[in-house]
């Protein structure tokens, strides 16, 4: 709204102050997280609000990074590696399969396309939490329960991503493909060489959203695995928070681990946020 410029200076300062206050409230939990991860366990419990750790203790961080003496209690480096592995595989699969399917639904005139599209639109509304038991059933029946394939395969594609990629492909001018085809290029070559480079913003958006979804995924991994070998940062951290550690509150450790879980996705968003702003919700708002 353009009102601020015409308002009295006093009101302007007031609304600005209110906005800053809200920004502080929004970021304060993260600040407290950082500060308290650097305190001793006892200090974090008894003085959670003090903004200067005194004394500074890196015990929590050392435990998380596996450099401290108390190794073996938790295995964060392994969980980090698991998170990275499944996130990369899932992201790769989604970007490739979603864009393939999205392209076919947008541009290839095959028999049954309307039916396939209707099915995908229908699966858009299936709530994830209602799928936990069913998906557990299927991966158990397939013999991939408690394994990397069981964690990755069911997530290799998603209806939202297919729908989104279809919207992006629809915006590419048809002329380009037609001239490629006249030049004798096959369907896959046309897709790969000509059309895919045109939807780079879409690919970037899908990459970020897929990676975020996989990295932050918790519920599905919780039911798809049972052994600590397959803990990701989310399931491992949840296990620690739910009492996997016995001695004391261990807040510095938990907060440090939570930060380690947050940072990679946060960095991704900082770097690519300009792509997301324009695209992410266009499909949702405009239909």
């Amino acid at each position: 709204m353009s009102t601020l410029a015409y308002r009295s200076p006093r009101r302007q300062v007031l609304s600005y102050a209110l906005l800053v206050l809200f920004a502080v409230v929004f970021l304060l939990p993260f600040l407290l997280q950082v500060v308290n991860s650097l305190k001793t366990d006892g200090n974090a419990t008894s003085h959670p609000l003090s903004l200067v750790p005194h004394p500074v203790s890196t015990a929590g961080w050392q435990q998380v990074l596996g450099t401290g003496g108390a190794a073996g209690v938790t295995d964060f480096p392994r969980w980090l590696a698991n998170s990275a592995l499944v996130s990369v595989l899932i992201t790769g699969g989604r970007v490739f399969l979603d864009s393939l399917a999205g392209y076919a639904l947008a541009r290839l005139d095959f028999r049954g396309r309307r039916l396939v599209f209707a099915l995908i639109v229908a699966t858009l509304m299936v709530p994830n939490v209602a799928l936990l038991i069913p998906q557990f059933l299927v991966i158990k029946e397939l013999g991939i329960f408690n394994s990397y394939p069981g964690m990755v395969l069911p997530m290799l594609t998603d209806a939202t991503g297919i729908y989104m990629m279809r919207q992006f492909f629809l915006q590419v001018p048809v002329v380009l493909e037609e001239s490629a085809r006249i030049d004798g290029a096959g369907t896959f070559t046309t897709y790969w060489r000509v059309v895919l480079p045109m939807v780079r913003p879409g690919i970037i958006t899908l990459t970020i959203l897929s990676f975020q979804g996989a990295w932050n995924q918790y519920a599905f991994f919780l039911v798809a695995t049972v052994s600590p070998n397959y803990f990701t940062l989310t399931t491992g951290l949840a296990n620690v928070v739910n009492g996997g550690l016995s001695a004391g509150n261990q807040f510095p450790l938990k907060l440090a681990a939570a930060m380690l879980t947050t940072v990679p996705v946060a960095l991704l968003f900082f770097v690519f946020q300009r792509y997301l702003r324009a695209n992410r919700f266009d499909a949702a708002v405009k239909g």
């Binding site: 290839l108 299927v138 209806a159």
Partner: peptide, 29 residues
């Protein structure tokens, strides 16, 4: 004919996964 085959080749991996891990599970549940 080309688009018919191509179209199905393009959608079938994604479609198979959605059917196996989304549609079938609902019935099982």
């Amino acid at each position: 004919a080309g688009q018919n085959v191509g179209g199905w080749l393009f959608v079938s991996p994604a479609l198979a996964i959605l059917l196996l891990f989304l549609v079938v599970p609902i019935g099982l549940a």
